[in-house]
């Protein structure tokens, strides 16, 4: 769980970095070049297989763990400890992960499937023919329902990371007495900044802040 989690966290860094190119305000030039690089470089294609493997492993492990852990207490409490002992999102990683899975299916069907399996309209940048993924973003995020679903997905991601980031390091046995403040601080900042950046992408397209 922790290893695949940290691997997926590292993927988020790349993903948010490339997507942030939409704010370059250059008509999508920088973003299209970046996505062209990601789509056509052999190394990236190989890493993509690893990414999907990591993702599937994380989902399967997570679901198995959730089912196993839930089965450890057949009779529940009449009055539960609830928020008196832990944060709600720390106890809801299974639920948050499942919401993220639904989000992911929608997200892949919006962008990954069309770019991989259909011919997107192309555009020319610096004399180079590249697929116009940027136009796809502008098109998809015109629908307010999609924008709201994406923002909800990002909120789920934020809470998933708020617990998952520090939990992953604890599971790996990082001596958290010494480093726990650092890990918690970085994890908190990462969860907020990355989720906010992702959430602002559909919002800024919908509100016309990028064109």
């Amino acid at each position: 769980m922790s290893l695949t989690g940290i691997f997926l966290i590292s993927f988020l860094v790349v993903h948010v970095g490339i997507n942030a190119c939409i704010w370059a305000n250059d008509g999508g030039g920088m973003f299209n070049l970046a996505s062209h690089f990601m789509a056509t470089t052999v190394v990236i294609r190989i890493v993509e297989v690893g990414l999907f493997a990591g993702l599937v492993l994380h989902i399967v492990q997570g679901l198995v763990l959730e089912v196993q852990n839930r089965s450890r207490r057949k009779t529940g409490y009449a009055v539960s400890l609830g928020n008196k002992g832990s944060k709600w999102y720390s106890r809801s990683m299974g639920l948050l992960g499942t919401l993220l899975l639904f989000f992911l299916i929608m997200h892949l069907s919006h962008f990954w499937v069309p770019s991989r399996f259909t011919e997107l309209p192309s555009t020319e940048i610096n004399g180079k023919e590249v697929a116009n993924q940027y136009a796809e973003i502008l098109r998809v995020f015109q629908n307010p329902v999609v924008v709201v679903l994406y923002v909800l997905g990002c909120i789920s991601l934020m809470y998933h990371l708020l617990h998952g980031f520090q939990s992953a390091f604890r599971t790996l046995g990082v001596p958290n007495g010494k480093y726990i403040s650092l890990i918690k601080g970085v994890g908190f900042g990462f969860a907020i900044i990355v989720s906010l950046a992702f959430a602002m992408m559909p919002v800024s397209v919908y509100l016309g802040w990028v064109s």
């Binding site: 763990l65 450890r72 207490r73 008196k84 002992g85 832990s86 720390s90 617990h163």
Partner: peptide, 11 residues
């Protein structure tokens, strides 16, 4: 069960 680091135990 397995530990998922919720910290309820410590509290």
């Amino acid at each position: 069960g397995s530990c998922t680091n919720t910290q309820a135990c410590e509290s």
